[in-house]
Design a protein around this nucleic acid. Structure first.
Lengths: 261, 261
DNA sequence: CAGTGGTCTAGACCACACC
DNA sequence: GTGTGGTCTAGACCACTGG
């Protein structure tokens, strides 16, 4: 009663292959509707579950999204540029407003953000980089940034309590000058930073907070900021939805590169 | 006959939640074996398909892997540091060997690579950055780099034909001096580069070439290299498995940053 | 009302690696 | 053989949205 086995590929994979080809070749464009599960089941003579599995493959590849009860649609989303260096460019007297808000407004987009501040035990990766003693807690400023009402990234900045206690950093409001200026005023100006990027699938909590559809990975960014004496003054954990960003990094020429001798 | 509906979460999600908690809390450690589908079906009084779906959730999150016919296991993999800047540091007379091979051997690992060279029509993203006329083809040097026999990344370098025709770049062998030196000898020394990183789920071809397990995203890196006159001399497309890399970027202090006035 | 995808069941057959 | 996960079937009920 079963269909004669194809070559090495399962039925659902073959169906997924055909649909994928249509998407990549452009015969199915962004926002176009795919056949329904029943259509596919009919067309290929399989059970609806199998048609569903075929679509599920493409969903997990991030190529299509399900919009119940309308059907499955080809994903179309343009990525925004994200330049992690920009917060270092923030110089005293320069910024009148938060760098993110300023940049995006200049680009004609509508940025918003939510902020909350808490005193917590930091995650292990943060504690390690801050070289904290066991159980020591820190101040975290958690932000969710939106563009046009859609979540764009989360940004959790961790600070040492002795440095920021009593400053604006402790209040859950926009800091027009930027947190780096406040740190500088406390004698801990951030002059150097290291970024560590990893890519992984989101946790259910992240899926919810960032309104991620299945098949969307996230980029986990860990920034460690140092002052002139090499002391860590902040650690920032950012989570960027993979379908909304292109991370742009400029590598300026090295001034000490010689001509071939 | 159906189980009474739980709160808002489906049965498979509840099962996945409990298993996820055990993994994140550490009561299930890396390489530990999870209950089989039949065990879970028994324990929760559901069909095997439902137990399978529950495990499938964690597979898609990249938390566990299936190893047929042994069972499902908690994923454990350490990430290697990846420093995209390192090929700019490659100065004339400096390198005796390919930067990647040198670095990894110094770190005590066993690096290998495969190379092939072809003349192709480049992908759109490459053609745009090279500002090619329509249909113009280019030279591509495709590499797959391995560590300890496991695929570590793919690295496809695209060059303009007039610049590299007749040079070592056209032959599918290791270039001890590095391709940048060859470019410099041709009068097109790369002095500046821009990196663009995006994260997405892999295509089936990438899953195969990089031996990726389900639930593993990739980082797509696009490097555009310029010579002193601002002309594009190479475009490199790299694909990094999300579970094997942490991308490290150093941001040196800006020399022109003033003290607060 | 009808149609969508989401969930779940109960069962079947398969390939694979071990014993 | 046994046990594992992978695939597939045929059917059911659900929530949601639209006409």
């Amino acid at each position: 009663m079963t269909v004669p086995r194809p070559r090495g590929r399962s039925v659902k994979e073959e169906i997924a292959d055909k649909l994928r080809q249509q998407i990549l070749s452009g015969s199915l464009g962004p926002e176009d509707k795919l056949p329904t599960q029943l259509d596919l089941a009919d067309e290929y003579g399989v059970a609806r579950n199998t048609a569903r599995d075929a679509l599920g493959i493409l969903v997990n590849e991030g190529l299509i999204v399900a919009r119940r009860p309308y059907g499955h649609f080809v994903r179309g989303r343009q990525r925004m540029q994200y330049r992690p260096q920009s917060d270092l460019i923030q110089r005293p007297g320069d910024a009148l407003k938060d760098v993110f808000l300023t940049e995006q407004e200049l680009a004609g987009r509508r940025p918003t953000q939510t902020i909350d501040v808490a005193i917590v035990q930091p995650p292990r990766e943060v504690a390690e980089r801050m070289d904290l003693s066991d159980g020591e807690d820190v101040v975290v400023r958690r932000r969710v940034r939106y563009l046009e009402g859609e979540p764009f990234l989360t940004n959790d900045s961790y600070f040492l309590r002795p440095i920021v206690e009593g400053t604006e950093i402790m209040s859950p409001h926009d800091i027009a000058r930027g947190a780096n200026i406040v740190l500088a005023e406390q004698g801990h100006r951030q002059v150097r930073a290291t970024d560590e990027f990893t890519s992984r699938m989101p946790t259910p909590a992240e899926q919810h907070r960032l309104e991620l559809t299945p098949g969307t990975p996230v980029v986990h960014q860990l920034t460690t900021g140092y002052d002139a004496s090499g002391r860590v003054v902040r650690v920032v954990v950012s989570t960027l939805p993979g379908d909304r960003h292109v991370i742009v990094i400029e590598r300026p020429g090295l001034p000490d590169v010689d001509e071939p001798s």
